[in-house]
Design a protein around this nucleic acid. Sequence first.
DNA 1: AAATAGTTATTGATTGATTAATAATTAATT
DNA 2: AATTAATTATTAATCAATCAATAACTATTT
Lengths: 171, 171
Amino acid sequence: MARPKKGNRKEDILEAGLEVFAIKGYYNTTTAHIAEKAGISQPYVFKFFRTKEELFIAALDRAFDRIIQTFKNVESSSEQLVNKMIEAYEELSTLHPNEIALQVIGISVTEEAIQEAAKNGLARIRSYTLERFNSAGIKNAEREVTTFLARGMLCNISYFLDFPELIDKNK
Amino acid sequence: MARPKKGNRKEDILEAGLEVFAIKGYYNTTTAHIAEKAGISQPYVFKFFRTKEELFIAALDRAFDRIIQTFKNVESSSEQLVNKMIEAYEELSTLHPNEIALQVIGISVTEEAIQEAAKNGLARIRSYTLERFNSAGIKNAEREVTTFLARGMLCNISYFLDFPELIDKNK
DNA sequence: AAATAGTTATTGATTGATTAATAATTAATT
DNA sequence: AATTAATTATTAATCAATCAATAACTATTT
């Protein structure tokens, strides 16, 4: 049977892709897996995304969008900004674990176009954070951003590996 | 012709594997690539390592060994220990880039046994560092170790993506 | 309102390339 | 002759991507 559903198929595929890629990684995910999750046939994926790589990059971009949106939602005074942003990021790893996992996966995949997309996403995070720290009047902002990113990366890995002991439990 | 070479084949394969995996990643590396680099035929790899995964894990373990050895070679007074270790790690990324790349790759691969090996390697780094910080009488050692690891992870990613701007240039 | 024409949504079948791993075989060394 | 070192030949599986076909809907004409 044809034409059963109505909704936005491209959107379905993108969300399915984000989830499956985040769980199984780039190479272990087949287009058939994604299709199944999206409730369509495997070849139909290619009507909306020219290649598996293109679909992955679209999912990765969306993951970075959501991460940045999380930071944008943090409202805070200068005093507490850094701590609030760290808090927000930690919350993200329980609230949107797939976005974090996809970030880790995107960074380490060796396909060139994917690495470019990952660099781009990290650059966006960095420049948004720097802007924010600056307009909050934080001194030594560049250095603080680096420390913030570093903590974020360790947080990612600790979450991705399901290895909480990697981070000390003092707060 | 058979038996042309003499040396330790297992060792050759392991070093070839470490290098090729570090450059192309786990999934994009074929056993044929490694064999070629080691100067042997593809199936002969399996005389020394039962599976591709087993070979990767052996290479990853060796990479972690070398990283830890680098830290062991740092001799320093309590005062300068942390800075000296950071310096040593930064040097590592130019001196032994493959070991760093393999670490990044090992962490993000979704094969379970490989993730276990990566966790194990990180745990070894953490516990060695903690011991060292403690016996140097550094106060708040747990927290300092976390900061040290975080910085290391960002360093890894910045190197792996060839993206130095991710880290601020102040020292 | 019936028939016709055209479009959109979707699938089944297939393929061509890749590749880890095994088996059979050959050559050199002791 | 037996052991060791290595190769060639082969296989079985996997998967992204293409293609041709079909079902269902919409618009147009009669």
